[in-house]
Design a protein around this nucleic acid. Structure first.
Lengths: 207, 207
DNA sequence: CTACCGGTAGAACGTTCATTCCAGTCTGTG
DNA sequence: CACAGACTGGAATGAACGTTCTACCGGTAG
């Protein structure tokens, strides 16, 4: 039929061809962007035939990029959820998250930034499928943060706004860290975001 | 000898060929990224011959991208300085800055994001000239913010850290706004950054 | 006038790109 | 066994890429 190895081990081999293609596309576009990544390179890296790429993604590069962005969406959402579940205090969880991002960035020699941003940035003006997929990823992450802040007793409107800023700052700090090849921006942003969250948890805001 | 129209009017014509090339490269790469922008497209848009591009930039596309990033650097630095000089309160100046960014983004139908980010992202792994130019741009902006915060009575170490977060958040919020085609992330980030700055201006921080 | 030089026009190079096509090999079903 | 349908190997297509090259212009200097 079409199911296989639904939740098998993950040595990155033995997994379905389509899955390998999406993984390769996501990783390569994360590092080189949409235009910088060729379909032949993806098929080579995935250990798949070029024709297989077009078999699974008849929409060509564009459809493949959307799938890669959705993959990156779920990847970061998973990391976000893990950080939130590892700490009771949401401010502390944000600190954990920035530390994890910094570690991943350094481990890849500053090559693996946000998996959505670099893929989406260059193609936004041309393909609205891609822009929409990226927008949904950002909205998804923002929703996760918002719900966690609500659970910590922050009022609804303030939780929504804070979630926006948390995602924006995480995104920008990861970018800054990647460009500077230095994790200071990420760690600093984590500290400041924690302060900001604590500010809203205890009292209201003054302008 | 080599000077021309140093500070003449700016109808974007009559200005030197080299200058027109840099402008076109900066604007096009801002919208389409490094790989998404062709040299022929740049020369066409600049109203210059293809050979002129290679005459002024013998290093080819890479050297041209570095010049485009430096142009974007100075562009945003100018906007930053203008915002800081328009307000006595640095927190208020940051709010002005986010509003200006939001307006520019909407005016271009969400096409003109950060002029440095999109140019640098795709080429970072390949050309360290480009990564370095982008890093210098970020450091430049961070320095401008830091000096302004120092002038407002914030302690040195805290001013440096805050400046990092201000730049990171501005960058991330502009990205989020561009992707979502909605200026909410930018305006919200401005409010939160202002609160954060005020927090440090009045007292110390608690973890 | 001639000589020269910064700048330009356009063709040409080899390469790579996304995409298409077809002939083939598997895999499971009747 | 035969047959279908999912999947793959590899070649081919036409366009676009970055870069190079040669010929040519317009002025200024000798």
């Amino acid at each position: 039929m079409e199911s296989r190895a639904d939740q098998g081990p993950d040595p990155d081999d033995n997994v379905g061809t389509r899955e390998r293609i999406v993984r390769a596309a996501s990783r390569l576009m994360q590092r080189q962007g949409y235009d910088g990544t060729g379909i032949k390179q993806i098929s080579r890296e995935a250990g798949a035939a070029l024709a297989s790429v077009y078999h699974f993604f008849p929409g060509g590069k564009q459809e493949l990029a959307v799938a890669a962005i959705q993959r990156g969406d779920e990847e970061f959402a998973h990391e976000l959820r893990a950080a939130f579940e590892s700490e009771d205090d949401p401010a502390e969880a944000i600190l954990v998250c920035t530390r994890n991002l910094a570690e991943g960035l350094r481990a890849s020699d500053w090559a693996d930034g946000c998996p959505v941003t670099s893929t989406a940035l260059g193609a936004m003006g041309r393909a609205q499928d891609i822009q929409q997929a990226a927008a949904e990823a950002f909205a998804h992450w923002q929703r996760l943060v918002r719900e966690r802040l609500l659970g910590a007793g922050i009022a609804e409107e303030e939780a929504r706004d804070l979630a926006h800023t948390v995602i924006s700052t995480l995104e920008g700090a990861e970018l800054a860290a990647q460009v500077a090849r230095d994790d200071t921006p990420l760690l600093t942003a984590g500290r400041h975001l924690a302060q900001l969250v604590n500010l809203y948890r205890r009292g209201g805001a003054d302008s």
